[in-house]
Amino acid sequence: MTSDATAKSLSFNSARFLISASRLEECPPDHGAEVAFAGRSNAGKSSAINTITTNGKLARTSKTPGRTRLINFFSLNRENCRLVDLPGYGYAKVSRDMKDDWQKHLGHYLNDRRCLRGLVLVMDIRHPLTDFDQMMVEWCEHNNLPLMILCTRADKLKFGQAKTAMMGIARKLEDVQCLQHLVMFSATAKTGLDETKDALTAWLEEEQAIQ
């Protein structure tokens, strides 16, 4: 028999802050289904999460990039379905030791979290495929983790420029087997929002079907 929690239609508007964790052992129990968002600081990750969930205050946006130093979990209206906001890297003006500590705990989450169903990599369409982005793509490819890339701030370019940028990114990633979705995205114009939600739903509901 299907439980009421499973029968509910998945709603990203239902997202609520659940818990923050600085290390793997502080994370929620490792069952159910999670999709994590990663991105270099200042790539628009928090704005993307807030747009997807229709909650402008869910993921904190800051004029000081890199302020999020914890793994933040958000519950959804399906039992044991979560969105996860991973710390941003590469821009924050913090000590090398602190950056190394962030990297270590992010690595533990990505390597050891069994309920992780996919990774959303957020990158600025004007500055795509940074060293951090390449590292995350290679990690997903090595671990056969489904990957979706959101090319944010598409509204900052003319449509033709944005399409040309997307084609260039697609060419560079054409041999990446784990890449399932490459989305032109704008939190301001809502470009790519429906496609993103559909992909997230497929990942999270696939796990529900398996269980």
Rank of each mutant, 00 (worst) to 15 (best):
H108M: 14
T51D: 09
S41W: 01
D101M: 09
F73Q: 03
L18R: 04
R82K: 05
T188F: 13
T53H: 05
M136P: 07
E34N: 08
P128D: 07
E141G: 12
F12T: 02
P65G: 06
F17E: 09
L200A: 07
Q161T: 06
D124R: 01
T196R: 03
D155A: 10
M148E: 12
S20R: 02
L70W: 02
Q180A: 11
M135K: 09
E207N: 13
T53P: 08
E141T: 14
A48D: 10
H142Y: 04
K8F: 06
K8W: 02
L129T: 11
V94C: 03
G39E: 02
H142A: 15
H31T: 11
L204M: 05
D100I: 14
K163V: 13
R23C: 12
G56I: 06
G168E: 14
V122Q: 04
L129V: 10
L106Y: 00
I49V: 13
D133M: 05
N42L: 05
G107N: 14
D124Q: 05
I49R: 00
P65I: 08
D112W: 08
T2Y: 09
A189W: 07
R69E: 01
T61Y: 00
D4R: 09
D198W: 02
A162F: 03
V122W: 00
R113V: 12
D133I: 03
D175K: 15
W203D: 08
R153V: 00
R117M: 14
A38K: 01
P146H: 06
V176Y: 03
S47V: 03
V122C: 12
G90A: 05
N72W: 00
R114P: 00
L193T: 11
T51E: 10
T54C: 15
C140T: 13
L110E: 07
A36Q: 02
N55C: 09
G107L: 05
T6Q: 13
M123I: 06
Q208K: 09
P29R: 06
N13A: 15
A199I: 04
N42M: 03
I19W: 04
T201Q: 11
L200F: 07
K8D: 11
Y89M: 10
R153I: 03
K45Y: 01
D112S: 13
I71R: 01
M166K: 05
K197C: 14
A21W: 01
T152V: 10
R171V: 07
A36Y: 01
L70K: 04
L58I: 07
G66R: 00
F159M: 14
D133N: 09
T54E: 15
L193D: 06
N50I: 06
S46W: 00
R171D: 15
I169Y: 04
G168K: 04
S95I: 10
L145E: 07
A7M: 12
K45E: 03
I49L: 12
